[in-house]
Amino acid sequence: MSELLQQAPSLGNTLWFVLAAVVLLAVLLGFVTYAIYFERKVIGWMQLRIGPNRVGPLGLLQTVADVTKLLIKEDTRPKNADRALFTLAPILAYAPAFGVLAVMPFTESIQFADLGIGLLYYIALSGITVLGVITAGWASNNKYSLIGGLRSAAQMISYEVPLVMSVVGVVLLTGSMNLREIVEAQRDMWNIIPQFLGFVVFIIAAQAELNRTPFDLPEAESELVSGYHVEYSGFRFAMFMLAEYVYMFGMATLITVLFLGGWLPIIPQLDFIPGIIWFILKFSAYVFFQFWLRATMPRMRVDQLMSFAWKVLLPVALFNILLTAVVVSYQSGMF
């Protein structure tokens, strides 16, 4: 697919681009719909409930009904909200979440752009999401939103640092920031084993980046009611919701690619199973883990959250880099 990028622009390949983007969007929407469905189901089961079961067979159309409801709802805006920013915020939150997917290799062949600095691109772009959240919090002209937005800013910026630091180890091991090469380099051993420390830091930081339990402070419903999107309704709220789950999609993809060997089978003998299945399996495992956490964990507190990021995660990530660097140097015969 990436060879399209090399061609001279023409009507044909522009249509291809658009079509590919629409397909990806459709896949994403399908994912979001059923991620929400399964989240509710899994958490329901864990809490001895049965989850959604009324709309459609087994409640499969529950999210569809919910989204439809959101779309036809009145679009309310607080009287003293900053009109322009209020409208802009959901887009700011959503666009980068969607944009990062461009460099994600799902299998050897399914990838949109094979960037040499794919990882850097991902991290750079995902950093923009926080802008959307802060903007939403400020523009809503609501105190809860504001606190949610500020918490979010502090949290996302703080956790971005250990997140980036934790993947440096992977980059050191692979010697490349190209996501496809990172996967290929895991043929012998998934990065989760040599980079276990990095993996743990990454998973924790990713959780915080995604604003999910136990780091869901920006939208803590029992403290801030709903945090930064408390004033949003209808379609705009749906955008935030979408951004959150698309971002989760992105993060799950990244973690699969970086640490879980992407589309590679668990042992080479199982090679006959297509890569995409392997990818989906690993991807789902991570998503399930998130739901599982949500069903179990209480929420952290802001001060603990911050001190955890700076006093625990960052040193651990730095140590991981040091360790990896030493090992890599040793292997390449520097000592």
Binding site: W45, R49, L293, T296
Partner: peptide, 20 residues
């Protein structure tokens, strides 16, 4: 403690549901 809690919820996944 976290692991214990996760174990608990995981066990509940397959337990009989109480929804009426």
């Amino acid at each position: 403690g976290l692991a214990k809690g996760l174990g608990y919820t995981f066990k509940k996944l397959t337990e009989k549901k109480v929804t009426h």
